[in-house]
Every structure is written in structure tokens, then in C-alpha cells.
Design a protein around this nucleic acid. Sequence first.
DNA 1: CAGTAG
DNA 2: CGGCCTTACTG
DNA 3: GCCG
Length: 608
Amino acid sequence: MGKRRSSPDTLIDAHVRFSPGQPKTKHAKKDLSNAKNAVSLLRLDSGSTPPLASEQTDYQHAEALKTTSPKRTSHESLTNTRNKLFGGLCASLISENISRVRAKIIRRLWTSNGGTLDDTAQTAKLILSEVSPSRLRQILDVQQLPEGVQVIYPDWVSRCIASNALLDPTICQVSDPVEVDCAVASDGTLTDIEIGDHGSETASDSTEVLELERVSGPLGSDTTHLVTSAPAFTENMDTSRKAETTSEVSADSLLSRIIHEEQDRTRLSVDGANADRFESDFDVESDEFDGIDDEVIEIDDDATATKPEDSLTKGVDQPKIRSQGRFLCMQENGRKDIDMNNKNAQITDVLEVLLRRSEAEGEHFRVLSYRRAIQTLKRHGKTIESGSEARKIFGIGGKMADIIDEVIETGRSRKAETVPESQAVLALFQGVHGCGIKVARSWYAQGCRTLDDVRAKARPTHNQLLGLQFYDDLQQKMPRNEAGAIGECVIQTCRSIDSKSQCTIMGSYRRGRPMCGDVDVIVTHPDGRSHQTILPALIARLKESSSLLLIADLHLHSSSSGYDSATSYMGICRLPEGAGIHRRLDIWTVPWDEMGAAFLHWTGNDIL
DNA sequence: CAGTAG
DNA sequence: CGGCCTTACTG
DNA sequence: GCCG
């Protein structure tokens, strides 16, 4: 603890200080973690300003308006002044479909950041709910929700805390599911995202809520009770659950999911407002948080202290819980995106920052630890309530438990916010295909700070050139059915060469994700040898094909290096119709008798 | 062989 | 305290 | 950073 490496690598040790009031020159840019998983949380880009940035500042502005003092100094941030994040805001929490523990955490996060709670839903302008507006009206027994009320998912709260700003609630807005078909393929072959029959909800509900303007809450409302609707688990529950699920795959929520993902990427950005709050209180360079005794953190004690396990299991050796169902395909909801289902996003986001830093520092195995912990937490399915609870999970030890405690209590981790200035740039560079940490550092050392710098100054390799060229496209995930359409083109082409060949779309598509970072197809052949020769032919024919445009090769298998081993093609492709965004395409050839292993390998485990 | 992707 | 990461390809 |  606290031992700072006297590394000659000044690049990494150079931490930047964000001075208060310093204008944000860095735009958090969209980053779609493909398989390189969340490689870049921060983007420096000379390009377009992300849409969220303006909204965010709007809300920061709104916050300034609603608070009494015009300016909030960084020193006040963590102390219990009235100028807190949610100060003056009043919300109702609808507990249906929210576990008791989670509701407790939400309430604590809300109130400890200055928000007030109100169950009458009359003074509250925000309703935190996991159920649709139509169901909500049933619960509240009203024909129509009051004017100016927004219904949003509760994780808006933690997102705000994570980014330390009042985010636009509409990005977490709850709306009734709308029945939409979202097939991408023009031939209509791939409509694998089907919307179940659920026509009961009326469409008027969503529009009603959509237009609600945000209103600053009453300043001193001290009513703090909750709408705790009796959890009558009747068929109402079922329908709302169903609605939830369907909305997850409807085209309507496809959009909102994209917005969600956008927000996912943005909320961790180290913006000036965020960082400066800590700068004044802590030495950035220090790993220890010793000198922070004046900090007052409000914690609802009943949540932590009265939990028997916490005190009892502390230090006691108990068998650790391994995540059951380590293979996603074995889990019940293989179709659900882990990231969308992540009950511990707040924690994993922080850990991802730490992972990235360790990666930048070359702390290889530490990266491994973080990655495992993050993966486990994302799949845990239950919101972690305390560090000691997390500590029981296999792969999470004392250090992470401490961090988790801090995140739960304060909404963030100081350690994660002492971010080297270079990290944002390095992350940006590592988003380029073919650029890892080494190359990123070398570009940085050459003075590059933007992609345009790289294009101008550096000498990228062939793959890196392609990575630069298609940078924006490759950052984006594609909707599941587009991946299916691309994969199907490959499969059809492969069959046209040899009708007995067997092709399967693997990767995130096979894992049932609604959004896929790339397309993985494996090709095999029952005769046990044709798979070795089919790939060049397949590539050649794909290049002639008009149904799928192969834009560039990242690597073609060049020589016959292995006898039976899998060979691969990696390239960039694009569908002729549609948005025309370039996508990563991987094709692997696998010996027939290794298919079992291949399936495990490609669908089993995200860590690989 | 190092670096990278997956 | 030592071990933790398979494999194949590019340059 | 976590585990044995």
C-alpha cells in the first residue's frame, strides 16, 4: 500500500490536476467497447461534440439555479452542505420490481446526496420506477400522472452520482413498450428479434411522459416517506415484467439502449467538475487517504451496521461463492445483455477505471484480477450492498471490498479518480485496432494527443491505418440483427462453395446480446479437412459478393502455419444497405472434431 | 521475438 | 510468497 | 489484486 514505483516512465506517473473552473477541453466521446471491452472510457477527440455534453451542462446549470448559493466550490462537494447533487430535488421511489436491498441503496444514495423523498407523488417531480407508466398509474391509482412528473429508472441516481452531475433524466426515462419490428436485412430473413404479443399498453402513456419538462423541486420539502406499494405478485407483476423484457428488445428501446450505452461511456469521463472536487481535498498522487478526517460522509447506518453478516463474516474464513453458471449459455437468460442487466454498474464502472490504469501501468495480473472481478460482478445478478458482501465472491478480496464500500457509500472512489492525464489519450489510441498499450505510449511519446496527430506524425502499420480510418465506425456496436445479417451472408457464401460446410455465428451474437461489437463466424466441415482450404475461397467469393461488402483485410491467414489448428480471417465489412457502418468480421476455421471445444471457447466465457 | 487481438 | 493467460498472427 |  502506498508504495509508489520509482518508474522511469514519467508518462504514467504524470498525473494531471484538473483545476476548478477549467473549461472542459476534453469531450467524452462515444466508445463502444467491442471485444476489447471498454478499452477506452475516455476519448479525446477533435471531432464532434457528443450530444450529451450539452445536456449535461444544462443540468449542471439547472442545478446551479435550484441551489441557493450561486456557485459551488469544490471544497463543499463531499461535505454535508446543502449544495449536494440532488439538493432540493424531491422524488418518489416505486418499489415494485425493485428488491428491498436495492430500494434501500437507492434511497440512501438519493438522500445522502441531498435529495428528498415523497410518497404522495404530488410534490415529487421525479418518480423512480422500474415499472411502466401504465402500471405506475395503476399503483398510484390515478388516471394520469401529475403535470411535470418524469418517470425514470432508478439507476439514473447512481449514474448521476457516478458522473457527479445531474444528468438529463430523459435518458433513463421509463416508457411503455411499443410494438415495433426491427429487422435489418432487406430480404426479411433475419427478424430474430421478435416482439412478443403485448398489445395491452396504450401508446398515449409514453408520449404523455415524454413531454414533461424538468422542474426543480421544492427547496425545503421534508416529507420523506416512500411509495411502497404492496408487492402483490400477481399477474400484474408478470405483465410488467414481460413489458420490461419486451421493451428490452423493441426497436423503440433499441434507441434508448443506445442512449444508455452512450451514457455508459460518458458517465465515467473525468470531467473537470468531477475531478476538481477531489483535487482540493486529496493529494492526487497519494494512494492513501489519510488526511481526510474532515470529510463527513452521510451513511444510513441501518443499511450497513445492522446487517448481521457484515460483522460476523468479517475476517472469518468462509467458502467463497463462485459464480454459478460460469458459462453464459447455461444461464437462464442467455438473451439478456449482461451490461444491460448489470446490477452493479456503479461498482464495475469504477473498477474498470482502475483496470485501465493498471493496464496502462503494465500491471498485467492486476488487470486480470480486475477483469475477473468486474465480470463476476456484472453477472452477479444482485446488487451488492456492501464491501463485505462482495468480499465473499470469488475473485474479490480486501482491496476491492474497500473500494466497493467507498463506492457504495460515496458514489465514487477517490482512487479511481486519480487518473493520469495520459490515460485518456492512451485509451483513445488503444481504440485503434492494432494499437495496444505499447504503441499507444509510443505515439504519446511522439507527441501525439489526438488521432489526427497520429495520422500526421506517426507511422502506423497497415492494420493501425485501417483502425484509424474506420475508427468511429468500429467503436460502435451493431444491433444484433445486423450481426445476424452479416453472419448469414458469410454462411450463405460458404454453403455456396461447399454445401456440406457448417457455419455458426459465434461471439456476442451467439451469446444473445442485443448489441454486438463484431461478427464471429466459425466454419467447419464434417470431412475433417476441408475447413483448411475453404477459407481463401470463402474470402475470395465474399469479395465478389454484393450482399456483403468486404472492405479491408486485417489479417488473412497467410501461410499454413498449423496443421489442424484454427486459422482465421479478420476483416472489415459492411452491409450494402442500411447505415453503411463498417463492422469487424472474424471468420475462423475449426477442425470438425474440435467443434465442441470451439463452442465452449467462443460462447462460453467473456473473459477470454 | 514483441506486440496485439480475441 | 508464487502463480495467474489458451493461441496465432503481424512487423 | 486475488488466491492457495
